[in-house]
Amino acid sequence: MTDASRSMLEVRDVTCSFGGLRAVDGATLTVEEGSITALIGPNGAGKTTLFNVVTGFCPCQRGSVRLSGREIARWAPHRIARLGMVRTFQLTKALSAMPVIDNMLLAAADQPGERLVNVVLRPRAVRAREREAREQARELLAAFRLERHADEYAGTLSGGQRKLLELARALMARPRLLLLDEPLAGVNPSLGRELLRHMQRLRAEDGITFLFIEHDMEAVMNHSDRVVVMAEGRVILSGSPRAVAADERVIDAYLGGKHVPLEEIV
């Protein structure tokens, strides 16, 4: 019981196949509360599909998914998100036809104005929540240096800015656990470092737990407390960055025989 309360996410023996292909084939992993956990593995290992299963986007054909001890396998995505596990997508899903600020407001949790009855009968409560959310959105946009673009259509942002917007937007939904699918892909290095600092800060200040998929080994080794390695739909290894970086299987199969230099964690 004490163990269960310390783990934020417990995935047991989860399977998901497309036709004959078992994209996730009995994967098991745990994400500790308050940790920054990295999920790595070669292309096609099933990392994104695992995210999809865990967040309800792919039907979970077998196994169990527990969020803070609660069984959520086969729940609908929106219910899982409301429970505090929010994800981003490998191919960024910024809503281009909406202004940046609307992208943010959309994600605000507990907006009574998303119910038709309240729109008609409780306009003041709706406006009050909207004001609050707008303020929070402005702060987040400022933190991610997107403030200037608040009123522009999200479609006008650069690829890297869209990644930042997606992260900022996910934060509006008040997550306890954030799943980021390759947050650094397509982001220029200085923006990428900033994004990693944000992750550290959000964990420290707001106690948000992170699970992120990343191919950038330097980011993985220097910014995570734990690394989970997937290959062919299974978790083949997990442990501290040091232990994982030293593992022969990882060096051979994934890092192409190179050792990754480790810095101190910021």
Binding site: V86, K93, S96, M98, L106
Partner: peptide
């Protein structure tokens, strides 16, 4: 209204909307 905003989000990308709890 916020309701209309969700509608537009769904129009553009249903999965994005669902991932945000809609």
């Amino acid at each position: 209204s916020p309701w209309g905003r969700v509608l537009r989000a769904i129009r553009e990308d249903e999965d994005a909307a669902r991932s945000l709890g809609k």
